[in-house]
Design a protein around this nucleic acid. Structure first.
Lengths: 255, 255
DNA sequence: ATACCTTATTGACTATCCGTCAGAAACGAC
DNA sequence: GTCGTTTCTGACGGATAGTCAATAAGGTAT
């Protein structure tokens, strides 16, 4: 069963402090629901997610699932939130790196890459949530959670750009705000992920390695803003590889 | 009804040469189906698209719809193809512009912007098609059509980058292919469109004008590659505004 | 140990919606 | 007008989301 796959959004099987047996059972069951749901989505997208089949796989009745999640859409959003929380932790760890601000930003880039590798299903789910007017069917609490998380992610990165401006490494043109630079990085990242997760003819188009192109283009954009050290003067790619190996290799961020 | 909205993917009501009354009726009916479907998707996404309701709105029975489209998903793909064909025509018109290659590329950017304004619903539909494992349910012919169209779009732009390299305005680093530059432009464009079409809190994050940021960041990326004239030495934004007004203002591209 | 109350679980049931297809209606040739 | 052909129809079958009354399990007081 795929529930033994790595990088599951599950909680550890150990008990949490001040938690009854019952509560633990419920928590573990919820994790199993999410794991099973994730597999079904990977298999057949939104339409592949089937409540009856989830029930059969976790060996509980369908009614029990609805005690955890108001509806199908809430399961999707729970998966997204789980991933986004992890990403936020990874970004914060990356932001704690000490060095020139542009290098710190590259460290965030490494975190973003590691995140994709930790949660290879995430962009599929996020895209479904963004597209299928699933949004409106979910509870405001979960929506709020997701927005807060995205906000904080953005904030973490914006702070680094501010740092670059403060240190004099980066001089933004008149009227350009740090948020716009982050928006650019985010756009490229999201665009690349969506294209590579939904186009099986990338190689035909002439893109052999989307992640290589991602790094390249993000770096060129920052070069375009004149943020020093320029990518010709510093081996950002080597730095990112190193950071990924040293900081983001283990599963310590899977919660 | 919204079927009177501008920029419909409809064919003109006039007859085509060598077309019988019956054939014309069928063609017009198909256009009505697409127009009605588009409205339903805009209203409620993939789940808002309802075959019974389409039937009621076009005042034919459900069975008749299935004479035009094998299934629901084919309708989505038809909408996408319609839009992509138009985009290709717009891109080709833009590529015909004479001037420095980077200015020609900016003209393509103007076309891309005009396209978004002509087909404000397109990215919602494209996202659904990319996400919801709808792909597998559609006919190979239509899929092929879509891929060919994307291919040609890409090719049109790649040619301009090649031109830039040939003229000496752009010197690509060792091992970087023109396709990767286009991939970067495409990523930013797609990322921005998806974020702005599915996030209603952009202003909170600090992005007042996504399209302004799009232009800015694309230009900075090209600056990073050192493609002359740099965006500080040429008013690309002014050029794009002019082109949009002069070339892409009218509906001549709605077919 | 038992009776009684509370909470958790179940799965049959309803509602919705996609896609089909046998029959009805319209069309056209003669 | 008749008959063969094409087009159209909408009731039906099947799949699946979500509900809820009935049932089982768990906990507590006596």
């Amino acid at each position: 069963m795929a529930s033994t796959a790595p990088h599951l959004p599950t909680q550890p099987d150990t008990s949490l402090p001040g938690e009854s047996r019952k509560q633990r059972e419920i928590r573990l069951r919820e994790a199993r629901i999410l794991a099973v749901a994730r597999d079904q989505i990977l298999e057949g997208g939104y339409l592949g997610l089937n409540m009856d089949r989830i029930a059969a796989q976790i060996e509980y009745s369908k009614g029990t699932i609805y005690q955890h999640f108001r509806n199908k859409e809430e399961i999707l959003l729970a998966l997204v939130n789980d991933a986004l929380n992890t990403r936020l932790r990874m970004f914060r760890a990356a932001a704690a790196f000490e060095g020139p601000d542009r290098v710190r930003l590259a460290t965030i880039g490494a975190a973003a890459e590691a995140f994709v590798e930790h949660y290879p299903y995430h962009f599929k789910v996020e895209q479904i949530v963004r597209a299928a007017s699933i949004w409106e069917k979910t509870s405001p609490e979960r929506r709020q959670l997701m927005q807060t998380c995205e906000h904080s992610c953005m904030g973490t990165v914006v702070e680094i750009v501010h740092g670059g401006v403060a240190s004099g490494d980066l001089t933004l043109p008149e009227g350009v705000r740090p948020e716009e630079v982050v928006f650019g990085m985010w756009s490229i990242y999201l665009g690349v992920q969506i294209i590579s997760h939904s186009s099986d003819t990338l190689a035909d188009i002439g893109i052999d390695s989307p992640s290589r192109s991602l790094r390249l283009n993000q770096n060129r954009m920052l070069d375009g803003y004149g943020w020093r050290p320029l990518s010709d003067d510093f081996d950002y790619s080597g730095h990112m590889d190193r950071v990924k190996q040293q900081i983001f290799r283990h599963d310590q961020f899977s919660q």
